[in-house]
């Protein structure tokens, strides 16, 4: 199953590259630099998915105290941090040629950086507490509180005046992109989601092995 997911994700990423560079047209205003969007937007959507899973699994752990929920929250949290880091780096690289700066303390960028730091802290907290059960409990609380930041990140561009553009997808209004750009984005989004599921299954297996060795 995991192997199949891996192959599906690899095929999806190849299709995403073909769509992003071959099918989707060059942006009329930004030129080819806009193609960074096919990495940037799927990365943050995958991070949202990961942190939403952390929220659900953390609630599950606090209610049931079953290790499986904690395993899921820990694994999804780690992968979410990777994708949020990727979002920040790709956004910064996109920002330089379009805005003239690598970074600005804009509401979207700042709230995303805070999201990243919250979940880095979430992972560090697990390593800092010796008692596994207590560490899992503390982490679950941080995982739940951290998820509050997800809607703040997403709607920051609507709630405040920002340099960052409004949401391209998951927008309250009709998506402001052409059908071909939207389709390329969709293919890349699905490919990143498959990659997330594959990495999650790998990370879950690793965490299970860690538990067996510790026992």
């Amino acid at each position: 199953m995991t192997r199949w997911l891996g192959w599906l994700a690899a095929l999806g990423l190849l299709a995403g590259l073909a769509m992003g560079f071959g099918y989707a047209p060059k942006d009329a205003v930004q030129g080819n630099v806009q193609r960074i969007m096919y990495v940037h937007v799927p990365s943050i959507l995958t991070a949202y998915l990961a942190f939403a899973l952390v929220l659900i699994a953390s609630l599950g752990y606090l209610f049931t105290r079953r290790t499986g929920w904690d395993r899921l929250a820990h694994s999804a949290g780690e992968i979410g941090v990777v994708f949020t880091g990727l979002t920040l780096v790709s956004g910064s690289i996109w920002g330089k040629p379009t805005w003239g700066t690598w970074w600005t303390w804009d509401a979207r960028l700042t709230s995303t950086a805070i999201l990243f730091l919250i979940y880095v802290g979430y992972l560090l907290l697990r390593g800092m507490v010796d008692d596994q059960e207590r560490g899992a409990r503390y982490a679950a609380v941080v995982g739940i509180l951290g998820a509050v930041n997800i809607p703040i990140v997403h709607f920051s561009v609507l709630w405040w005046r920002t340099l960052h553009q409004p949401p391209t997808i998951l927008s309250p209004e009709r998506a402001p992109v052409s059908a071909s750009i939207g389709l390329a984005l969709l293919v890349n989004g699905v490919a990143f989601a498959l990659l997330f599921l594959y990495l999650l299954s790998k990370r879950l297996a690793l965490r299970r092995l860690e538990e067996e060795i510790r026992a």
Binding site: V33, I36, I79, S90, W94, K202, R203
Partner: peptide, 30 residues
Amino acid sequence: MPDHWGFVFAAYGIAAVVLFGYWRRLIRLH
């Protein structure tokens, strides 16, 4: 606006290195 291909390749290159590196790390630790 110029195309800035260097920025495009940098973004895709870093994404590939990060994701491949993370995947390799999971495999190695396992």
